[in-house]
Design a protein around this nucleic acid. Structure first.
Length: 157
DNA sequence: GCCAACGTTGGC
DNA sequence: GCCAACGTTGGC
């Protein structure tokens, strides 16, 4: 078997809906509800068990990186796409041809403090202006982070 | 295949 | 709550 270098990702969640504390409580959570093709493709085609995840709190008073997690499963179909009663129901998806995939995310640790977006932005030059978190207008909720970016961001803790 | 209209994201 | 930026939908 070939060994694959661990990859890193950033995943956004609105803490009112699901926070790092919620993840700590449940341990592992299926990352359902992603309905963006680019984000889906990262989960379906890019992620592997053991990959590192920066857990980001969005749409909250102080948005920022709140914890770390790991990818805990291979990609599989997001069940909510088949559930008529779910907000994430997709009438065009079928069991035979699912449209949306997810992975399980496992709690690693909560940071001693949330690293605020405002502070991260001050390191744009260090992180690269193309970094999706600080790139103007970027709304992607799942995207790759380089090993260097990962290490640097956590060094701000 | 174009593109206007619409819905969503997410910082502020 | 506002609204800029973006992605998706659907008529043509």
């Amino acid at each position: 078997m070939t060994r694959t270098r661990r990859r890193y990702w950033l995943m956004k969640s609105e803490p009112d809906a699901f926070s790092i504390d919620d993840l700590q409580r449940v341990g592992t959570e299926p990352w359902n509800g992603v309905r963006n093709y680019q984000a889906r493709n990262f989960m379906r085609d890019g992620m592997q068990v053991g990959d590192g995840v920066l857990f980001y709190h969005s749409n909250t008073a102080v948005p920022g990186i709140a914890g770390t997690a790991t990818v805990a499963s291979a990609a599989y179909p997001d069940d909510t796409q088949f559930d008529r009663k779910s907000d994430y129901f997709d009438p065009k998806a079928t069991r035979e041809e699912p449209r949306w995939f997810l992975i399980d995310v496992e709690f690693e640790r909560k940071l001693s403090r949330t690293i605020p977006l405002e502070e991260i932005k001050q390191h744009g030059e260090r992180l690269g202006e193309e970094f999706a978190l600080i790139k103007r207008g970027s709304r992607l909720s799942v995207f790759p982070v380089s090993a260097d970016q990962y290490k640097f961001l956590l060094s701000l803790e």
